[in-house]
Amino acid sequence: MKRLLITGAAGGLGHAMRSRLGGLAERLRLSDIADLGAAEANEELMPCDLGDAASVMRLVEGCDGILHLGGVSVEDRFSKILNANIAGVYNLYEAARAHGRPRILFASSNHTIGYYRQDQYLTTTDPMRPDGLYGVSKCFGEALATMYFEKFGQETALVRIGSCFEKPRNHRMLATWMSYGDFQSLIERVFTAPRLGCPIIWGSSNNDRSWWDNSAAAYLGWRPKDNAEDYRAELDAAMPTPPADDAASLYQGGHFVREPIHQES
């Protein structure tokens, strides 16, 4: 690609991918409302509020691909989620439609299905069961992307990220963890595969413990390599396993199912 747009590039995941994807495009266009730091030689910085339609239209112009990590990434007030995760996603897809429909990797979330129990094994056709307003916003994003594919041919990978960190941070992540390296390889596959379409992809590594069936996306040729089980002893030494009746042991969304609705201040 000539230019890959990364939204949310100042966040933890955006920062990690920014340093790994320089070989995927001649230029990386980085965007966020937070400080993006200094631009590297192959980077261009374009701060942007996703809720500002005109700014998003300018942001997408000239891009061959979009890695959409931007928006609110935790449970929050509805007004913040509405601006970034609902209006912002609509603005992004309208801008993509206006500028040649570049492929998009949409960072969805396991919180679209957070109320399923951990003893349930899910396919991508199981109904959504969001565990909060954040999860609802990702359900909206998946639905919007699907409609833009059906109506306009806009290709999108809907990646339901489990927990993407350098290493798993708690026992629940033994099932949900996706390593930075595996996410990098998934991104590369999404933007180079001959055919994408609009698949739902479970964003997790090759963990021994798994709740999700990724066979529907096997045609992409993505094969995650890392395994959260390698960190089990380290986790066991660092913290106790949560009780069997704890949300972190019962639900795929973990403690998100217990989060209250955040009131407007």
Rank of each mutant, 00 (worst) to 15 (best):
Q154L: 06
H262M: 11
E40N: 13
F183N: 01
T146M: 10
A244C: 15
A244Q: 15
D230Y: 09
W212H: 04
A193K: 00
E43F: 08
G23R: 06
L82C: 15
P168M: 04
S204G: 12
R58V: 14
P168S: 06
D35T: 07
F183S: 01
D131A: 03
G141N: 01
E61L: 10
G153S: 08
F78S: 10
E150K: 09
H111E: 13
C48G: 05
G181F: 02
Y115T: 13
R97H: 12
A34R: 14
G141E: 01
R209V: 09
I200N: 00
A9C: 13
D76I: 10
R189G: 02
S163V: 08
L67S: 01
A237C: 12
G162Q: 01
F191G: 00
A193G: 04
M128S: 14
D76M: 07
G197R: 02
K80A: 15
D49A: 11
E166V: 07
C63S: 05
V74F: 14
S31D: 02
D226P: 02
E94I: 05
L186E: 00
R258G: 10
N83L: 15
M46C: 13
Y134R: 04
Q154R: 05
P130T: 04
S179Y: 00
P243S: 10
N214M: 08
H255V: 12
Q252K: 05
A16S: 12
M17L: 12
F140K: 03
R117T: 13
A216T: 07
G221V: 12
P260V: 06
P194H: 01
N170H: 10
G221A: 09
R27K: 13
A39R: 08
C139I: 11
